[in-house]
Structure formats: C-alpha cells, structure tokens
C-alpha cells in the first residue's frame, strides 16, 4: 500500500505498484456469469484491461454493461467466473477491499451521499487507501480543479444539480488517483460542455498511468478516448478488439437481432458466438428484454429458488 500520497496536483501520477511490471494486465475478467435473483445478466464475459490502457465497454440497453462494472467492483457477486486485479484473484471480495486494492468505481446515476455536505463527501473519499496525509491540501487541490465544488462545499450534496453531483462523484475518484477506474455512464444527463470537461479529466488520468474501463452509451466519445473496445450483447461479448472495427459491431448489435437474422449475415468473422447462440435459442426473432434470460427457461422465481 502507498501510505504517503502527496496532495494531488492537477496532473498527478498514479502511485506505481512495484509488484506489477508496466504493460501487465491490470484487470482481467474471465468467463463471468452473474445476475439479479432469478434474472441472469451475464453469460460468460471475458476481457482484459492492460496497464495504462482505456477500454470502452459498449452495448445496447440491458446488454450487461453496468453488471460487468458492478461485478468488477464487487457490488454484485458473480455466480461463476474470475476477476483478477493486477494478477490477484479478487472474485467475491467485498467492495471495500477491492476499492482499497486500487480500483475505483463511479456507479451509474447519482452516486453521492445526499445527506452529507460536498466537503464531507470528499473527505470520505480522501481517507481511503491509506492516504491520510494532509486532507486540507488534498481538498484544496480538488477545489482548484473543480471550482464549482469549492463554492458549494458547505451545501448538502442532495441539493446539487444532477450534473454537479456527477462532477462530485468524479472528483471523489480523482482526489486519490486510482490504478483502475471503472466509470459507468459518466456522460448521462450532463451538458455537452460538461461532458467535454469530464472526458478531459479522463484523458489526464489515463496519461497519469491509470487503466480505464469506460461504460458508455455515447459511442463516439468513448471510442475517441479508448484504444480498445468490448461490445456486449445480451450478456455476452460480441466484439473485442481495436477501436477501428468496433463501430461496425456496435451498429450490428444496436440494430437488434431481428435485423441481422433476417439478412442472414451476422458476420461470423468479427462477432463472437455468444450473441448468435443466444438468438438461436430464443427462436431468433424476439424483441429485446431488459434482462438477458437463460435460454430455454421460463422467467420465474421458481427456477432459481436455491440462489435466492
């Protein structure tokens, strides 16, 4: 652990981890399966994020993007599969252990403590991962970077606008730069100019050596930042490769199975098998649902009573 983290200058570098060589795999996800009660969301998702790399995690509504983010940060316990952080198996760890190991997760939507003040939110974040150095100096650095938060520091976070709350949750993460950042829909509900700001911060973070996993529905933005893309469809990986080929896969997946099965050209060269087998099992032409379902099973509590 890095006990002595200095106050954060505007472009701080991520504390190096001596045990991990550069260009090593920072985050590795292997054959993940997960769900909520009887509803299955992931059917064997595998990908990696290398050191200092930004990976865009894309897919339509209900593809399982947020679930992947939640499993990686420990909020959802996977029913099968492995999550490795810098080579260490962290599958099934409590979220706070994973956070202390250097992974930061900005969840989707409002993710601040509404009853605490802005400053209390930041102090809470500063105390993690052993950095109990000069809190005041760190706060000053954060306020310098996010001027709007400095003006609101005494306000309760619940009184902030949606965009300000998103900024606050990003500031919480950047206060102590993480080794891996999992950002879930950072642009959601933000004005375009604010989104530009947010993405500038992400670029700076990547430049400082952090690995990024960016879940995003604004595909162009995410692809501009990322060097690689993973496209999910119905809880399976439909594409994993360089940004250049991602757009085509995204278009195919976003258009839905109805379109592709009718044309009969699902492009077996780039699209993974997961999505196609799923579509076949469902009979090929059903409308998309909120959750992916296990093929051949009725959606009901009884089918998975043991798990609940």
């Amino acid at each position: 652990m890095s006990a002595e983290v200095p106050p954060v200058p505007p472009n701080a570098t991520v504390p190096p981890n001596a045990t991990v060589p550069p260009n090593a795999t920072v985050l590795e996800v292997e054959d993940l399966q997960a769900g909520y009660g009887p509803y299955r969301a992931l059917f064997g998702v595998s990908f990696t994020v290398e050191h200092g790399e930004a990976v865009a995690l894309l897919g339509p509504n209900g593809a399982g993007k947020s679930t992947v983010a939640r499993v990686v940060s420990g909020l959802v316990r996977p029913s099968a599969g492995r999550v490795r952080l810098e080579g260490r198996d962290v599958t099934g760890f409590a979220p706070w252990r994973i956070a202390r190991a250097g992974l930061a997760h900005v969840p989707e939507g409002r993710a601040v403590f509404t009853t605490l003040s802005v400053e209390e939110n930041l102090v809470l974040a500063l105390g993690r991962r052993g950095s109990r150095g000069d809190v005041a100096a760190s706060l000053a650095a954060v306020y310098e970077r996010f001027g709007v938060l400095a003006d609101l520091r005494r306000h309760r976070a619940g009184t902030l606008s949606g965009g300000q709350q998103r900024l606050l949750s990003l500031a919480k993460v950047l206060a102590v730069p993480p080794r891996v950042l999992v950002a879930d829909e950072l642009s959601l509900g933000l004005a375009p100019s604010v989104v530009d700001d947010v993405y500038e911060n992400l670029v700076a973070l990547r430049g400082a050596g952090a690995a990024l996993l960016v879940v995003e529905q604004q595909v162009e933005r995410a692809l501009a930042l990322a060097s690689r893309a993973v496209v999910l469809d119905h809880g399976s990986v439909a594409y994993d490769g360089p940004v250049a080929g991602a757009m085509e896969a995204v278009a195919r997946v976003f258009a839905g199975p109805g379109v592709t099965s009718a044309s009969g050209t699902r492009g077996a060269d780039t699209v993974g098998v997961g999505a196609r087998t799923w579509v076949a099992a469902r009979g090929g032409n059903r409308p998309m649902t909120g959750y992916g379902e296990e093929p051949g099973r009725r959606r009901s509590w009884r089918t998975s009573r043991r798990r609940s």
């Binding site: 940060s73 706070w96 605490l116």
Partner: peptide, 24 residues
C-alpha cells in the same frame, strides 16, 4: 471520521464501500 463513515453507511452501505470503507 467514524461518525462521518457511520452517517455515510446509513445512507448507502454499498456506496460507502466504494470509498474503501468497511461498511459491515
């Protein structure tokens, strides 16, 4: 700090864990 963590955990036991706090 314990008081701060307790108040945060009362609002969301999950979110506070993302800040590296042992909510349990």
């Amino acid at each position: 700090r314990l008081g701060l963590e307790m108040r945060a955990a009362a609002e969301s036991r999950r979110l506070v864990q993302l800040d590296g706090v042992n909510a349990d």
